[in-house]
Design a protein around this nucleic acid. Sequence first.
DNA 1: TAAAAATACTCCATAGGTATTTTAT
DNA 2: ATAAAATACCTATGGAGTATTTTTA
Lengths: 321, 321
Amino acid sequence: MFQGVSYSLTQLEYVMAVHRLGHFAKAAEACHVSQPTLSMQIQKLENDLGIVIFDRSKKPILLTEMGKRIIEQAQSILFEAKKFESLIKASRSDRVDGKIVLGVIPTVAPYVLPRLLPVLEKENPEVELEIHELQTQRIIDSLNSDEIDVGLLATPLKINQIHEFPLFYEPFSILCKKGHPLGFLKKVKYSLLNLEDLWLLEEGHCLRHQAMDVCSLRKTKKYKRRYEFESGSLETLKSLVNSYGGYTLLPSLATEVIGANSLLVPFERPTPAREVGLVYRREHYKKHLIEVLGEAIIASIPQDIRALRQKDLDVLSVEEG
Amino acid sequence: MFQGVSYSLTQLEYVMAVHRLGHFAKAAEACHVSQPTLSMQIQKLENDLGIVIFDRSKKPILLTEMGKRIIEQAQSILFEAKKFESLIKASRSDRVDGKIVLGVIPTVAPYVLPRLLPVLEKENPEVELEIHELQTQRIIDSLNSDEIDVGLLATPLKINQIHEFPLFYEPFSILCKKGHPLGFLKKVKYSLLNLEDLWLLEEGHCLRHQAMDVCSLRKTKKYKRRYEFESGSLETLKSLVNSYGGYTLLPSLATEVIGANSLLVPFERPTPAREVGLVYRREHYKKHLIEVLGEAIIASIPQDIRALRQKDLDVLSVEEG
DNA sequence: TAAAAATACTCCATAGGTATTTTAT
DNA sequence: ATAAAATACCTATGGAGTATTTTTA
């Protein structure tokens, strides 16, 4: 009689990673092991359990019927295991377990965090945050390898097993130097945007792609610049515009303070905007805390932005890095 | 920074066993490993977690404050793990998971099972039973090593972490051969019981000790017999009485059929009786199924026994083997 | 024909064993 | 004095690595 049911938590994590990513090599990377190691362990597990979990004949890899049932219960084990681990970690740092590790994209972090932190401290002192500034792709990877609990970024991403919690819609506007042709307009039309003196963020920022979308640069593929310069920070772009000239695209939370030589010009309707939201792994056991965080962020942003609805805006899609 | 929280399900099982049994060596036995192996693994776990779980300075071994919190969550993991394992096992035998492995003592099995099985089959066909006839001590051991889910035996046992579900109270009566002095009585008084021709079950049966209690044999320690014979089965005792003579103590479910040469004599009030109940590990994840089983057993026994209440009887205690 | 998963092999960490010592009632 | 847990030491399994082959979209 087949008696023993032998398996390890590690093996279950590997299975979940493959399920999440639909790809052995990517799963291996997320688990910080080599692809053969992960493959072997999953084979061993399937062998020990006497059950084929994955149907490798399709790509991306699919679960078998039995695999679906297995994985659900495996998830429950890992869920409890996660709680166990955070209990341990909490005991080490003599803290109750209200800590969330948050990844925030650089075009959101400097504008949301200064608003969020005081609100959170006052309204939800039980929530402790550890914050990392990361670009979208890094946030996705870090979620998958469980290095962060939740990401704050431009959505929608629509990634398998990643849950999204939309928070608000942030409209864009144009910042140009006084005297710039765009500065004489009441409202900006997309078609008026001059490609030559647009300042862009460097590759990897999702806002770069959204800016290119707005300025119809995606179709032409190439774009000419008088000076080759791309920045890692919106603040640098703002200060470039203010001192040197040209224009750039700013999300509204970044327009609170602008230089004395700069002018802010709104778009004509429908205003281009980005959706900002939280993302986390569907099965995350701190779901409640994450929702508390989400509410706090909404509460912390200005009323006029909070009131904006998707249907009144031209919400841009997000290009994955 | 202390990063990794390394532990295995096996280690958690060891911890739970020590907690349950308050004793490293006994825990090791229940887990089918040597005492040093278990000791080492628990030390390693405590070391890896950076937490002292057990306070070894007292006996039986106690949990530390942190240990208490740890094992609660550890229990949740193992609970889910158990469900996972039975999912696997169920898939192997192509069965839904309604199977319970039941240990029954020999003085209950032949009288309860023939009544129970038809009831269960009719009323709860989703419950599948695997039955082992075991003496009390083996049932306790098998519960601890997880070889059975639940025991049906004489209670109360009052064992740490073992939950009891009393089912009914089974009164005793005396069976003697026609012509035996006891046979001329309407009601038996304890004091009238003659020690010389009492037939006893062999050592290991809890009923043996209860019979000795009733006949006040426990105090004298030694008892004289004309013939040295002890049986492993009540049916053998009944047939001995019927053909050879003497008397024995029978629980009422065993008195349905008696030999033609035998006489059944009831006790005077309060009637000595035993409590029969189910026992299982407190944390057992099939608690619901076990309760269903308990109800079915109650439903299957005769109404007159089912109606008896503890306060009207002299319920005997159980001597552990 | 490229990308992805499986196989082949080597290595080492560790869970397990037995024998023994240390520690507590 | 005795039972119980810890320590010492050995063994073997298997999880992880790199290099390579096989598979299949």
